[in-house]
């Protein structure tokens, strides 16, 4: 087949157009396919986050149930048995009045009963179920203040809104953990707990203790501050909230928690 220069030029142009179109298609395909893959990857990651949250929720619920069971066992079984022993000892008191050992044993028993009650109350805050978060926190603040070690004040501002019981339990555990940290580690003489109800629930726990050094990492589980803050962070994440810490050595710490309502 003979073809002249013009015909060849047309064939050349067509061939060129096809190849360039093919190259262009490859480039566009790469862009489009990459976007699709990226979207799928993001979807997978989101699903994973939801799954992890559900797992965490289940773990915390089972933890609460276990705490409840232990609290009930302590209160109903060990507590009842101790109370029975106390009654028996009370009956024998007349016969053994002169014995000092008996008196000290009775005092130890009273203290044990009180300790069992406290542990039981901490494990399962019955007031939380009955009267809600504010009342329980107020009661906890008064109880700690009465112990004489630290002065705890609780204030609440804004229009209180209804929140789910599960959420209340999580919030109580968070504040309980923060207060425990302040009592055990900070050496504070005063702790202020403030709840502010607005579009969100803002909780501030402030102490005048020795403070601590915040590491550069923002991931709380990598902090050297133990599992306490990590557990708080997990609970806050579960509530879709945010957590900020302001702390300075020898100047105390301030923990700010914001939970969307």
């Amino acid at each position: 087949m003979n073809i002249n220069n013009n015909e060849f030029f047309v064939i050349f142009l067509i061939g060129l157009a096809i190849v360039l179109l093919l190259s262009f298609t490859i480039i566009v395909f790469v862009i489009a396919y990459q976007k699709r893959m990226l979207n799928e990857k993001l979807k997978r990651e989101k699903l994973e986050v939801v799954y992890q949250q559900k797992m965490l929720e289940a773990t915390l619920i089972s933890q609460e149930n276990e705490r409840g069971r232990i609290a009930a066992d302590l209160h109903d079984s060990v507590g009842a048995m101790l109370s029975t022993i106390r009654l028996s000892l009370h009956a024998a008191e007349g016969q053994l009045k002169e014995n000092n050992l008996f008196a000290s044993s009775k005092q130890m028993l009273d203290e044990t009963i009180e300790t069992i009650r406290r542990i039981s109350r901490d494990l399962l805050p019955i007031n939380l179920e009955k009267f809600g978060l504010s009342f329980t926190l107020q009661e906890m603040a008064e109880r700690v203040t009465l112990s004489g070690k630290v002065k705890v004040s609780f204030t609440e501002v804004g229009n209180k809104k209804e929140i789910k019981k599960e959420k209340e339990v999580q919030l109580f555990r968070i504040i309980q953990e923060l207060m425990n940290n302040a009592l055990k580690h900070s050496g504070a003489s005063e702790v202020i707990v403030n709840m502010n109800w607005s579009d969100s629930l803002n909780i501030k726990v402030k102490d005048n203790g020795k403070g601590f050094e915040l590491p550069v990492s923002t991931e709380l589980h990598t902090m050297e501050t133990g599992v306490g803050l990590h557990s708080i962070n997990l609970r806050i994440k579960l509530l879709n909230g945010t957590f900020h810490i302001h702390t300075e050595k020898e100047k105390g710490s301030e923990f700010l928690i914001t939970i969307p309502l």
């Binding site: 060849f8 050349f12 061939g15 060129l16 190849v19 360039l20 093919l22 190259s23 480039i27």
Partner: peptide, 18 residues
């Protein structure tokens, strides 16, 4: 690179015949 050398390739493939 893909666009340019695809174009070069077509020019080169026609070179011999031309």
């Amino acid at each position: 690179v893909l666009f340019n050398f695809s174009g070069y390739l077509i020019v080169t493939l026609t070179y011999g015949y031309l």
